[in-house]
Computed example of a mutant assay.
Amino acid sequence: MLYMAGLGAFGNLRLLGRGSYVTLVRIQKPCTAHYPTSSKRYHVQPQQEPQPQQLAMSYNIDWIFQRMRFPNTAWYIVSQIVITAVGLLAKFVLGVLPVKYVCNTFKIRWSMAAHDICFTNKFHSILFMFGKCIPVVRGIGVYQDAINLCIQKCALGHWVHVFPEGKVNMTKEQMRLKWGVGRIIYESPCIPIILPMWHEGMDEVLPNTEPYVLQWGKRVTLNIGEPLDLNGFIQDLKDRQVAEPEARKLITDKIQDAFYHLGEETRKLHSKRL
Rank of each mutant, 00 (worst) to 15 (best):
P192L: 09
L24P: 00
T105W: 13
P196L: 02
D253E: 11
I193M: 09
A146F: 00
R176Q: 15
C31L: 05
L97P: 06
I224V: 10
I77D: 13
Y260G: 06
N12C: 12
I194W: 00
F119K: 11
A85N: 12
L269Y: 06
Q54M: 01
F10D: 10
M170F: 08
V205R: 11
G180T: 08
V181G: 01
Q256S: 07
T266E: 02
F65H: 03
D62V: 06
Y260E: 04
F92W: 14
I140R: 04
Q66N: 15
G141V: 05
V86Q: 12
E264M: 09
G139L: 01
M197G: 04
H270C: 01
H270D: 11
E200S: 08
H43W: 09
H270V: 02
M197E: 00
S39C: 15
S79C: 14
A74K: 10
D116H: 09
F123Q: 08
Y212K: 10
P211H: 14
D236P: 06
S38H: 01
L127A: 13
G201L: 08
K40N: 12
P135H: 11
L228K: 04
G225L: 02
Y42E: 06
P50L: 03
S111E: 04
V82I: 15
I147W: 02
Q235G: 12
E210R: 15
C118L: 08
E187R: 02
L7D: 10
G225V: 06
L97E: 04
Y76H: 12
P164A: 00
N60S: 04
L15G: 10
Y76P: 07
C190Y: 04
I61Y: 12
C150F: 00
K100Y: 14
N223D: 10
G17V: 10
Q66K: 15
Q66H: 15
S188R: 03
Y3P: 01
T209V: 12
E187L: 05
L2V: 01
L2K: 00
V82Q: 15
G8H: 03
V162M: 02
R267D: 12
V162F: 06
M175S: 11
F233L: 07
R14G: 03
M112L: 11
T209S: 12
E165I: 02
P211M: 11
E244L: 13
F119M: 09
F163N: 10
R138C: 00
P135T: 05
I224H: 06
I194L: 11
I234Y: 03
D203G: 05
L2T: 01
D257K: 13
A155D: 01
V93K: 03
P207L: 14
P36Q: 01
G141E: 06
P52R: 07
Q235F: 12
P135Y: 05
W63G: 13
Q215T: 09
N72L: 12
E265H: 14
G17N: 08
M129F: 13
A5M: 05
I61N: 13
F163C: 08
K107S: 09
G166D: 01
L250E: 15
G217C: 03
G157M: 09
C118V: 13
R18G: 10
H261Q: 14
V162W: 01
K178T: 01
G141T: 05
E244N: 07
E226H: 13
F130V: 11
H199T: 00
L94I: 07
Q80L: 14
F10M: 09
L195E: 09
G139S: 01
Y186A: 04
Q241C: 05
S125W: 09
H115A: 14
G180A: 08
S125E: 05
V242N: 06
K249S: 13
